[in-house]
Amino acid sequence: TEEYEYTDEQQAREAAREWREKGYTVTIEEHNGRWRVKTG
């Protein structure tokens, strides 16, 4: 599992979409105004 943090929701969603296209399972969670994208 890798985790990436973004301050911008749009960036987080874009990144998540790219990971999904590569076949990863992706979770996005908002935490204190930051967006965490977890792949695994």
Rank of each mutant, 00 (worst) to 15 (best):
T1E: 13
T1L: 13
E2T: 14
E2A: 14
E2D: 12
E3S: 12
Y4W: 13
Y4S: 06
Y4V: 08
E5L: 11
E5A: 06
E5K: 04
Y6F: 14
Y6I: 02
Y6W: 05
Y6S: 02
T7A: 14
T7I: 11
T7L: 13
T7E: 15
D8Q: 05
D8E: 07
E9P: 06
E9L: 13
E9W: 10
E9G: 04
E9D: 03
E9N: 03
Q10H: 12
Q10E: 13
Q10I: 11
Q10G: 10
Q11P: 03
Q11V: 09
R13D: 05
R13S: 06
R13H: 10
E14I: 10
E14K: 12
A15Q: 07
A15M: 08
A16K: 02
A16I: 04
A16S: 04
R17E: 10
R17I: 07
R17D: 08
E18H: 14
W19H: 03
W19G: 02
W19D: 01
R20K: 09
E21K: 11
E21S: 09
E21H: 06
K22T: 03
K22I: 04
G23K: 02
G23P: 00
Y24C: 05
Y24A: 04
Y24H: 05
Y24D: 02
T25S: 11
T25D: 10
T25W: 13
T25E: 11
V26A: 08
V26I: 05
V26N: 01
T27G: 04
I28E: 02
I28Q: 01
E29G: 04
E29S: 11
E29R: 07
E30A: 08
N32I: 03
N32L: 07
N32D: 11
N32C: 08
G33K: 04
R34G: 07
R34Y: 11
R34F: 13
R34L: 12
W35M: 01
W35H: 01
W35V: 01
R36T: 14
R36E: 03
R36D: 02
V37P: 00
V37M: 04
V37D: 00
V37N: 01
K38H: 08
K38G: 04
K38N: 08
K38R: 13
T39K: 14
T39P: 09
T39Y: 12
G40P: 05
G40F: 15
